[in-house]
Design a binder for these strands. Structure first.
Lengths: 217, 217
DNA sequence: ACCTGAACACCGTTCAAGT
DNA sequence: ACCTGAACACCGTTCAAGT
C-alpha cells in the first residue's frame, strides 16, 4: 500500500547492482556474468548499469570489495595467532561461498574494505611484537595462504564436479606412465571427509614458524 | 632451397598453435588472447585452429601444461628440503615469465606434464620419510605457496604498472580513514629491491615447519 | 540526474563446402 | 585429413536521444 511507482520497481544504484552481480556469479560462475544478464535480473536496460558503474572491471572491483567486507577482522588484542587463525578461517568460509572471488582477488585493485582488512592483519602482526621484516613476510605468508589455499581447493572442487568420469578415464590412461604417488594422493582426497581441516593445519605451520623465527632472533 | 610449399608456410599443428598462443599471452595478457588473433599470428583462418584444438578451454589447458613442463622437477635423492626449494624457485621463475599462468593453473584440469610434476613433489615428500598425513598436507602447502605466492606477486606487479598514479591518489584519499600499517607495508614494498627473496623465506617457513612436525611426532 | 534503444566492433563456435 | 569463409548468437561499450 505504501509506494506504487509505475515503471521503476526499485531505484537502481551501485550497491543493488553489485549485489545482483554477486548473486549471479555465486550461482553461475564469473564466466557467465554478463552486463546484459545482470540488467535482465534487475529488470532494467543494459545501459542503465553504466550510470552507476563505469565499466565491467569497475564492477568486479566492487564485487570483490563487498566480499572482502564480509570477512570478520582479526581481533587486535590478546592472542595474535588465535586472532589470525579465527579471521583466516572466517575468510576461508566467506570465499568458499563466493567461489569466483579468489581468482579475482589478487589481480584487481583493492577497494576500501580490502585495504581495511589488509591493514588489520598488519596491525595484529605488528602488535604481536614481530620485527618489521617478519611483519612484512608474515603478511605475505598469511594472505597467500588464505587466497592460494582456497583457490586450490576451489579448483579441485570444480574440476571434480565438472567431469568426474573424464578425470577417472584420464587417470587410467595417464597411469600407463605410472604416477603412483599421485594416485595415492587422489585416493587420500577421496577419503578425506572434510573433517581434517587442512586449511588450519597449514596455516598453523606458517604461524608457528613465524613465532619461532621471531623468538630465536 | 629445400622446401618451397605454395600456401601453407608451415604445417599447422597443436604444438605450434599452443606456442603461438603462449607467446601472445606472455606479451598481451590472457584477456587479449583470441582465437582470431592467434590465427592472424599464424597466418591461417580462424577455423583452421579447430582442427587441432577442440575449443578455447582445451587450448588453455594445453598452454598451462606446456608451462608445467618447463619447470625442473625436484631431484629425488638427497636433501629433500633443498630439492623442493630449488624446484620451487625454478617454478617461481617460470611462472613469472608466463604471468597469465598462475590464475589458470588451479582452475583447469591438469595435463600430463602437470601430473608428472605433482607426482614428483609427492615422491620427494614421501621418500623424505614424512608420514602419509604430512605428505598430504605438505603437498598442499608447497603447491599452494608456489601458485599462491606468485599469483599475489603478479597481482601486485600488474596493479603497479597499470595505474600507479591512481593508486597513489587513492591512497592519499583512503588514508583519510588512516591505515598506517598499510602505508608502512607499501613503503616497505617500494624499498624492497628484489634482493630479499620473500618467496624463499616463506617457503622455508613451511618446509622447516613440516620437518619439525615430522620429527616431533 | 538518471534511463535507454540502436549501433559498432568485436567474441567463440557451428556448419557446409572446399582440397 | 586438413583447411576455410559465411553465418549465428552472443559480448562490452559509445552515442544520441529521451525523461
Amino acid at each position: 500500500m505504501a509506494t506504487q511507482s509505475p515503471t521503476p520497481v526499485k531505484p537502481l544504484g551501485k550497491q543493488r547492482i553489485l549485489e545482483a552481480a554477486i548473486a549471479y556469479a555465486d550461482e553461475h560462475g564469473v564466466d557467465a556474468l554478463t552486463m546484459r544478464r545482470i540488467a535482465g535480473k534487475l529488470g532494467c536496460g543494459v545501459m542503465s548499469l553504466y550510470n552507476h558503474v563505469s565499466n565491467k572491471e569497475d564492477m568486479l572491483v566492487g564485487m570483490v570489495d563487498i566480499v572482502a567486507g564480509e570477512i570478520e577482522l582479526p581481533s587486535v588484542n590478546g592472542d595474535w595467532k588465535g586472532a589470525l587463525r579465527a579471521s583466516a578461517a572466517n575468510a576461508h568460509e566467506v570465499l568458499l561461498m563466493h567461489q569466483w572471488a579468489p581468482a579475482q582477488w589478487s589481480l584487481r585493485m583493492p577497494g576500501p574494505a580490502r585495504i581495511r582488512y589488509m591493514d588489520s592483519i598488519l596491525q595484529v602482526l605488528t602488535e604481536a611484537g614481530l620485527d618489521a621484516r617478519l611483519v612484512y613476510s608474515g603478511y605475505h605468508a598469511v594472505t597467500m595462504h588464505i587466497i592460494g589455499f582456497t583457490l586450490q581447493e576451489i579448483g579441485y572442487l570444480q574440476v571434480l564436479d565438472a567431469d568426474f568420469d573424464e578425470l577417472a578415464n584420464k587417470f587410467l590412461k595417464d597411469l600407463s606412465g605410472d604416477f603412483p604417488y599421485m594416485v595415492d594422493h587422489v585416493r587420500a582426497h577421496m577419503d578425506d571427509n572434510c573433517d581434517s581441516d587442512e586449511f588450519g593445519f597449514v596455516l598453523d605451520l606458517i604461524l608457528d614458524g613465524l613465532e619461532r623465527v621471531s623468538v630465536t632472533s
